[in-house]
């Protein structure tokens, strides 16, 4: 563990804005900044940096296909550890052997993710349920913990090369780290998830899905704000100079998400759509990639217009509610 002066890191971040695109929480959402950031739990998550709501992937111009050139590398700074973890979870799907997602991966490979430990988790957080927590380092090139005018840093070479190494942390820093970590973890509700993937699969035709999903309005608020939801749609748009092929966030909550050209929709109602969202995160994802597709950040709980609470759903389906 190292300790680096806060102002040194803040100054460095502003300098790096010349050669990097900096994304950080600002005015309540993760967005591109000039190196500024604010400490908050942002509404739009860290995924905006690597999987923006909209991006061009290629152009068709003068009879030729032009790949969209790479932009400057990205520094995603100041997010909570759950958001950093989320990006590593998205990467599992994007790194698919047959169809690797080059647009995500090229950004991810050159990018740097710096998270700030979550000393004051919220009432809707349940990150510890998944074996990680408010001080998790998974997905972060560095985890910073605020202490007075220093950051205590658990980081990798990539981070220290850019931001400097500071000095070796003292014994009292390590104690502070452990104590703050324990205090934060104790505040967080743990949802039992033993064999959740299997349990869900065995209940796929259970009538309980109809009950659970009834109040869902099938808007996309939960999926768009979710730091691990990565579904996108690709469309070709006409421009005066040719065609722009772009991708956009899409949501499995929308009825048109699965609507086929014939008009048939294999997920015709809220029941199938909600079931898919839950199954994907808690059954298919662990089956395919060995991890749940959820970090327990609680955004879908906070921002759902009808207070659909995924924690309650997991308790019911996991057999403890």
């Amino acid at each position: 563990m190292r300790r680096i002066k806060k102002e040194a890191i803040e100054k460095k971040l502003k300098e790096l804005a010349k050669d990097y695109r900096i994304f950080a929480p600002m005015n309540g959402d993760v967005k591109e900044t000039g190196g500024e950031f604010e400490e908050c739990f942002p509404r739009l998550s860290g995924k905006c940096a690597f999987l923006p709501p909209e991006e061009e992937i290629l152009r068709y111009k003068d009879g030729k296909v032009e790949e969209t050139p790479e932009d400057k590398p990205i520094i995603l700074f100041g997010i909570k550890p759950c958001d950093a973890r989320a990006i590593s979870l998205i990467e599992l799907a994007m790194r698919d052997e047959k169809f690797p997602d080059v647009y995500f991966l090229r950004k991810k490979e050159k990018g740097i993710i710096v998270s700030i430990a979550c000393k004051e988790p919220g009432d809707t957080c349940f990150c510890t349920s998944f074996g990680h927590g408010p001080f998790s380092t998974q997905g972060s090139d560095a985890l910073l913990v605020e202490k007075d005018d220093y950051y205590l840093v658990l980081g990798n070479e990539k981070f220290f090369k850019l931001f400097g190494e500071g000095e070796e942390a003292r014994e009292e820093d390590k104690e502070y780290f452990e104590e703050a970590k324990k205090r934060a973890e104790e505040k967080i509700e743990k949802i039992p998830i033993d064999n959740l993937g299997e349990k869900l699969l065995s209940r796929i035709e259970d009538p309980v899905w109809e009950k659970i999903s009834r109040k869902c309005l099938n808007c996309g608020a939960c999926t768009f704000l979710c730091p691990t939801c990565y579904c996108f749609d690709i469309q070709d748009l006409e421009r005066s100079w040719g065609v722009s092929r772009r991708r956009y966030w899409d949501s499995c909550m929308f009825s048109i998400y699965t609507k086929e050209a014939s008009g048939h929709n294999p997920r015709p109602t809220h029941r199938e759509r909600v079931r898919n969202r839950i199954m994907h995160k808690f059954s298919y994802y662990p089956y395919l990639y060995g991890e749940f597709g959820c970090t327990g950040c609680g955004r879908c709980v906070v921002y759902c217009p009808v207070n659909f609470d995924i924690r309650e759903v997991l308790k019911i389906l996991g057999g403890s509610g």
């Binding site: 309005l217 099938n218 808007c219 996309g220 217009p305 009808v306």
Partner: peptide, 10 residues
């Protein structure tokens, strides 16, 4: 707006 259509669905 992020076009989640919560307004529409509500």
């Amino acid at each position: 707006c992020i076009r989640c259509y919560a307004c529409r669905e509500a």
